[in-house]
Design a protein around this nucleic acid. Structure first.
Lengths: 220, 220
DNA sequence: CCGTAACCTTACAAGCGTTAGTTTGAAGAT
DNA sequence: ATCTTCAAACTAACGCTTGTAAGGTTACGG
């Protein structure tokens, strides 16, 4: 019997050599679940399999285990965030405007897709990727490759503040420290908004702008 | 059969009317698990029962369900934090010193007991307590009683900034907004430090002091 | 010595990650 | 046009943990 219906059980087999197609569908399914359910542990082998209309063990052809799926979701997420910020900042010639645009984009990313953001930057389970724990490093250069890519957005932030300072628009004497402060502050701002939505929050945009100005020491 | 507990099975029964004793032991067990495992979902009925050397269903005499246990842990946690801040700030006559002391205490609480802090302010699962979701409110006065108590520490922060402004030590014109910014910023600072321990973080104390100064608009 | 508070054992249905073995059907060879 | 092969999917099942229901036992206070 030929199954062409996409909803029916079982999947029309991929062509030879195109098994990788399913891999992408699995990740996409995992992302859909994450966005819909809003919690990382809603991503189970079986839920992903259901979502992708697949038998659970079929996943093992493409991923070593459950964590590998989540890692894939993570990588895509970090890349998406990086691209978003690059896109938004590249167009801005003015350093202050660039800083603000980047910060706003970061915050909006977090609020638009809260579950994904929480997985990216607040994963509760096993942040035991090599290099995540251990003694603190002198510079982020010492972090493993995975984190180099993951913290690319942060580097953009450091540069943005440094550019403001170089242009005489900011009093920052330590762009790295100030970027760190600004980054974590925005992190807290978006997470708390997600956690207590009914709190009388000021608009996120103005909060981000205030943080950027005060922490980034922007001249008025 | 594997004995996971050093204690023999079964519990010496409490006296009549003292069943409440076990209730406290259950909560204590849950707190121990949370601190040891570092994740909220390590608190299961059965893990708590094991930790308390109790049969799992015995918990139902004292708690309606799993969530009720966590709620109890939450309530204790919020109260502990509130007390800590009250203790630390009550002794300080100088408003700026009081602000700094309170902020530092908050941050230290979060770093000393990371798992508990995350459950208090970053609970991933079902923040569906009445009033947590829904339309945003005009003031925090509209939040339900549970959250009134829970946000007591925040009120202290608003007052502290207002006191600084009143004493001419801060340029804040909107203590509520500034307190909000400062609160969420500290939240982000501690969470990120927990999430990426190897990042070359500046000392938490100085980060908190910087945030308090810049966001609280403390005069130099 | 009874009633009942306090705690117990047993059991169930779900759901999980994972392993093992089997079917299917398109690609390439004959 | 037919056969062969094997990647890509399947079904079945194991062993585990979970929350919870139902009902049994023990020993203290009246």
């Amino acid at each position: 019997m030929v199954k062409t219906s996409p909803e029916a059980k079982g999947r029309t087999r991929n062509r030879r050599g195109e098994g990788g197609l399913l891999r992408d569908e699995i990740v996409a399914a995992a992302e859909r679940i994450l966005e819909r359910e809003g919690a990382e542990d809603a991503i189970t082998l079986r839920s992903v399999a259901r979502e992708a209309n697949i038998a659970a063990p079929s996943i093992y052809s493409h991923f070593a285990d459950r964590d590998a799926i989540i890692d894939a979701v993570l990588d895509i997420g970090y890349e998406r965030l990086r691209m978003l910020i690059v896109d938004v900042t590249a167009a801005e010639p003015d350093p202050v405007a660039r800083l603000l645009a980047g910060a706003r984009a970061y915050a909006e990313f977090a609020m638009t897709d809260p579950a994904r953001y929480r997985v990216l930057f607040g994963r509760s389970r096993a942040p035991e990727a090599p290099g995540l724990s251990g003694p603190p490093l002198e510079t982020i250069e010492g972090l493993p490759d995975v984190w180099q890519r993951r913290l690319d957005a942060f580097r953009t932030l450091v540069d943005a503040i440094a550019a403001c300072a170089a242009a005489g628009r900011s009093d920052s004497t330590d762009p790295f420290s100030d970027a760190t402060l600004l980054w974590t502050s925005m992190h807290g701002a978006v997470l708390m908004r997600q956690f207590v939505p009914r709190f009388p929050w000021p608009p996120l945009d103005s909060a981000v702008a205030e943080l950027a100005h005060r922490i980034g020491r922007i001249r008025d």
